[in-house]
């Protein structure tokens, strides 16, 4: 199992870089990982809103929400979502939020 060292801490991730345990997630993890997902500098308020939303939804349903729902509930559109997370919602945003890797045709 590969490991990644971020901000002085070690995390177990899978080969595609997804955190293996949801509860190991921390804000530092997300911040330190951001650069890997093409996000420059500090995560903004907007980023955190999405990340927290994703984590809440995941906690409740065990899966990431439909992308449309994510956008709507956070009052942004797809374009903005891709600006915030350039590697895409399924990859970038879920990864930072510490969700497990989406499978299937997503």
């Amino acid at each position: 199992m590969p490991e990644i060292e971020l901000a002085g801490k070690k995390y177990e991730i899978d080969e595609d870089g997804f955190l293996q345990e949801l509860d190991k997630w921390s804000k530092e993890f997300a911040q330190a990982y951001a650069k890997n997902e093409d996000i420059e500098g500090q995560l903004t308020e907007e980023h955190w809103k999405i990340i927290n939303y994703l984590r809440d939804y995941f906690q409740k349903f065990g899966i990431a929400p439909m992308i449309r729902k994510l956008c709507k509930d956070n009052g942004i559109d797809m374009k903005r979502l891709y600006e915030l997370f350039p590697t895409g919602p399924a990859k970038g945003a879920c990864k930072l939020a510490g969700l497990s890797k989406p499978t299937g045709c997503v």
């Binding site: 349903f61 065990g62 899966i63 929400p65 439909m66 449309r68 729902k69 989406p102 499978t103 299937g104 045709c105 997503v106």
Partner: peptide
């Protein structure tokens, strides 16, 4: 299902749609 969507999440998604 291939995307591992639980039933409850699926129903939530249908409601949303």
């Amino acid at each position: 299902n291939t995307s591992a969507i639980p039933k409850a999440a699926f129903i939530d998604t249908l409601d949303f749609l």
